[in-house]
Design a binder for these strands. Structure first.
Lengths: 248, 248
DNA sequence: GGGGAGAGATGCCGC
DNA sequence: GCGGCATTTCTCCCC
């Protein structure tokens, strides 16, 4: 036996699952997955997390992402068979199955965790378009965005409005480097607007901090424009406070 | 104090970091992030993981993905200030900063984890194109894929070859439902091949288990074709074994 | 629930 | 390093 025989892991596990606790298991195991795709992971040390919504994550000791996972509402059973422990996870609705065979269990811990808080995020694409709406001169002098009401009729467009010569302007924002796809997207939107409004002359602009050369070439080939704009950061003051705290 | 004052978490943390152990911390905390974007997460119970490569994950008790994270090679310091514990994580190279303030620490555990194993995955897009290469009749009678050498010259194309009438055929595989983007992609590839080979008549086919109506309309409008093909699963035998094991 | 598009996307492989 | 592209993508919004 490679784990403490005095502890009844199966019982402790079942209790934690039933109570909706979050479970952490560290152990040496092999992992088999079958569902949308299939995979096999040979034996090694891993960290397992089962959340209160019955999400399962299998993490290796390096890397950002779980090597295997099961979505919420999955059923999990821990059971012993001869000299090994097995975790068997099934999501019948999604037809997904995951089996873990432990040769060694380093530790297991369960804990009731309470949290319902949501993340407040700044600097997204929507924040960029909001910034342009509030500061239309970022695009060019004389640019006038359409009213919120008019705009929501064309919800798929990040920003649009009229320029100094009353030409309609369609703007696609990208928070990171604009690529090929961004140009395709802008092209589609301009086409739709031309058709929808019965216009022949509509300007298209990509607003992004950077753009790839390929994308820029295609953009110009299609008669569109590029404008360098960085996504906004609102929390500067809060950030400064944090930085001061960081001077340890 | 909301944690065991007899434990020197700061010392234990530093030792674990220096030894490259994986650390798990459960506690009630608030999280501030500043980098590519910015975010703030109000106080709640979370599970923190620091891996041996210095990846940090912050998990809430529900959901698949970490609510906050730092990539590998980040520096982490745990320190006490008045009635709170702080975890301060910095990645100077990426200009990313994350601060966590704990009001309560449920537990902390560190463990040496050893693993270098890689996942063996089946059912990906590449597996689909491999399957078509081995069984060209899945596309149609008389379809002849190009040789491996010729194919690698156009690495961006999943499969291509000649049909019964010696017309060039470009195939784009999608392991899940094909969408608008898949059609755009196929269009780009066919254009490139036409230009590259100086041909005017090149067939384009999307091979996928499903396709959206919009995508199908656009596909036909452009004179391309759709072929229903499911991604392969190789491990059927292994799978059956697992299912038998699952009859508990 | 399907479709379309964003993401602090991530990760892989190419040049 | 950038660029192109897949991902058991995941997530959100809207129809």
């Amino acid at each position: 036996m490679f784990w403490d025989v005095n502890l009844d892991y199966e019982k402790e596990f079942k209790l934690a699952i039933d109570q909706g606790h979050t479970i952490v298991i560290s152990g040496c195991c092999e992992v088999t997955y079958n569902g949308r795709a299939q995979s096999y992971l040979p034996e090694g040390d891993r960290l397992l997390i089962i959340k209160s919504d019955k999400t399962l994550l299998v993490h290796q000791p390096e890397g950002n992402n779980p090597i295997n996972y099961m979505k919420g509402n999955t059923s999990h059973k821990l059971l012993r068979d001869k000299d090994a422990l097995y975790l068997k996870s099934q999501n019948l609705a999604l037809k997904e199955y995951l089996d873990i065979k432990f040769s060694r269990l380093h530790f297991m811990k369960s804990q009731r965790l309470e949290d319902g808080k949501k993340l407040v995020l700044n600097g997204s694409e929507k924040d960029m378009s909001d910034m342009i709406y509030s500061n239309p001169e970022l695009i060019e002098k004389g640019f006038r965005p359409l009213s919120r009401e008019e705009h929501t009729k064309f919800g798929f467009i990040d920003v649009f409005g009229y320029d100094n010569n009353n030409r309609l302007v369609v703007i696609e924002c990208k928070r990171y480097q604009a690529d090929f796809n961004a140009v395709q997207q802008l092209t589609r939107y301009v086409k739709k607007i031309k058709k929808n409004k019965g216009l022949s002359n509509v300007r298209g602009i990509i607003a992004a901090p950077k753009i790839s050369q390929n994308a820029l070439d295609l953009l110009r080939e299609r008669g569109f424009e590029y404008k360098t704009i960085k996504p906004p950061k609102y929390l500067e003051r809060y950030d400064n406070g944090q930085k001061r705290l960081g001077e340890y």
